[in-house]
Design a protein around this nucleic acid. Structure first.
Lengths: 372, 372
DNA sequence: CCGGTTTAGCAAACCGGTTTAGCGGAGATT
DNA sequence: AATCTCCGCTAAACCGGTTTGCTAAACCGG
């Protein structure tokens, strides 16, 4: 005030970054109460038509939009569903399986007007990430049932649907017939005369996990399916012929190369993911093997790209998009209290026979000879 | 009260679903003020150590966790960044390009402790979706500059970084050297002797858009690159040899088939996306053409899968993940007010020559004859 | 003209936290 | 002993909306 001028608070405000207009600003400008402004937006029928439209005019002229966070607080709903993954999003998004899965999730969510919020371990902690997540419900994918966060989420009273984890009673879940699909895949190779099988599983995200192989997890179920078919035909699956790899093309290549150079000479490979199968395909070819003449490869998932590989991949089809859709629909049914009873959805799988599987080579030498 | 008993309000509450404990509950139970509880969580150093730990004990025994929405409201930050796409998420997630892009986005976001919130047109309206989005900033990808939402977001004071849209002054953007990449691709084919070129562009998401081809958009820039190289060699690109297709394998197949059956006999195809290029590859083979002997195909993007196609795809590499990372880093630098000056980041492209391109066939008949 | 019902709009409470200003008491300083 | 400082904690204001309860005026039929 040294210049003899007095500053009104309004002027001072103008000097700074223009504050986001609040409901009170609109109310003052329009000469009504905050309530009226709120009504103008949410229940215009409680206002005289001309009042409502006048308020709205003032609102747009001020550039006012109700603050979404404040609105969430009072309405107790966020119109957002959380997608929880035990791995970093960066590795999730690189996986075509999740691409398809999220497609289904997005489809069902958008249809009901919900947005998607991805929750992944922040600085290593899923719990910390959950604390920041403003969601009406959560779809957790690939989270093992024993994971500590599960209980935390349930305790927080947030509706939860688990996808592809071991079965949990009184907990909505969505999964597929992993065992049946795997059995069909193994049966297929066995029917073609294969007896030397290599199984490539999916490496669990946390190497440090105590129970490396939960018998009830996805991998456990698939392994059980493979084994069941083999056992029925008297074929033995030795531990050495079961390896794991990251669920990627590279992972599959590395795994096959390692198995091959360790002396294994399978004529049939059962991969628990298409990405791995594609990697096996490539690695096998690099070894000079012909597919399917020298070696057969069967995948799992039936990704879009699997019909375009060379040769097209024989694989176990699972309805990935539908899985995502089902999970969200199930979730929303409990979020919106339409159906408080936890449901368990199990989707079908089926073997899709394409070009990467064929009759086993007559004699093992035939294969061995090829190797250089 | 007909039974002569009086109900305390507490008992009534107990009858219903157990309310989520609030900060006041913890305060009462621990015999302290709300402030103390808040301090126990956020600035424990302002409390006597034993008080803080006692409060925390009470909190866990009650299962209390601060309500994230309430916390957002006071702290004025959501620790979430929004990803805005002009198309439905269901179509976005099916596109491997976005998979890779989101990988980069997720990487940079998670590194700074931010979660991801996807904003897509809700019931057709991006504006409506934005109104519900609780984010500290937005990365908009593929949004044309003229899109009305852009102004709305800026007016709302939400920091915004635009990726792959036409350049906007005083607006942070991230894009790539589309023109240079395209020029290199076309030059490559021309150097190989190709003169009959087919260009397949990416169909814009909104067929109804007035300016189908913004000269400054991604497609406009790439087309300009193709044209520049052709023009320099005196090769003419007639409108008929420029077609568009959805950015998918299927889209590429359909587009090529249609072009072929309409009588076009290109010896070289310039596709503006790898997905399209892969589709072209397949469709060409379906027509009995050999790649690259009869026809060469050059893509754009260099997706992971492009090195695994048959033959491996010659394509223009762009650093997709880096693009996502850069966008988020740029965004966070303004969100966290480290750098208020809008920056424009332009990333390099480079031609990657693989197996899908080769010398043009000697005579055009040579190609025509192949056709059945 | 009167009692009863609608209508239009307001003040205050509330959602569930954080933050500011300040207060009483203990220990240190003069 | 009086004053100062620091510590540990609290009351109240605040973030920006929605919702409840209520009132004054307008409307209505009799």
């Amino acid at each position: 005030m040294q210049d003899g001028r007095s500053w009104t608070s309004e002027e001072i405000v103008e000097e700074r970054t223009p504050r986001r207009p609040r409901i009170a600003d609109v109310a003052r400008e329009a000469g009504v109460s905050k309530t009226a402004v709120s009504f103008a937006f949410n229940s215009p029928d409680r206002l005289a038509p001309e009042t409502a439209s006048r308020i709205r005019d003032v609102a747009v002229s001020l550039g006012y939009r109700p603050h979404p966070v404040a609105r969430m607080l009072t309405q107790r709903r966020t119109l957002t569903i959380g997608v929880l993954t035990p791995q970093a999003l960066a590795v999730i998004f690189s996986n075509p399986f999740f691409g398809a899965f999220f497609e289904g999730v997005a489809l069902a969510a958008e249809a009901e007007g919900y947005a998607l919020h991805f929750i992944s371990p922040l600085r290593g902690s899923l719990a910390r990430a959950m604390d920041h997540a403003t969601v009406d419900g959560v779809v957790a994918v690939g989270l093992s049932a024993g994971h500590p966060e599960v209980e935390q989420i349930r305790a927080a009273g947030v509706p939860l649907v688990m996808v592809d984890s071991s079965a949990m009673p009184d907990q909505p879940t969505v999964d597929i017939d992993d065992e049946g699909g795997a059995r069909a895949a193994a049966q297929h190779l066995i029917d073609l005369g294969h007896t030397e099988l290599l199984i490539v599983g999916v490496e669990p995200p946390f190497p440090g996990t105590a129970d490396q192989l939960e018998p009830d997890g996805v991998m456990g179920r698939r392994l059980r399916g493979y084994r069941a078919a083999a056992l029925a035909e008297g074929i033995e699956i030795v531990p050495a012929s079961f390896v794991v790899a990251p669920a990627s093309i590279d992972g599959g290549m590395v795994a096959f190369r390692r198995a091959w150079s360790s002396g294994l000479r399978p004529t049939g490979v059962l991969a628990m993911s298409d990405a791995i199968a594609v990697g096996v395909l490539r690695a096998a070819r690099d070894e000079g093997l012909r597919v399917p003449e020298d070696i057969s490869v069967v995948g799992f998932d039936d990704l879009d790209l699997s019909q375009f590989t060379d040769p097209p991949l024989t694989t176990v089809h699972q309805p990935i998009r539908l899985k995502g859709e089902s999970a969200v629909r199930l979730l929303l049914s409990v979020v919106e209290r339409r159906d408080p009873f936890p449901q368990q959805v199990r989707l079908e799988t089926r073997l899709v026979i394409r070009g990467s599987s064929g009759p086993a080579p007559r004699r093992r030498q035939e294969v061995a000879r090829v190797r250089r």
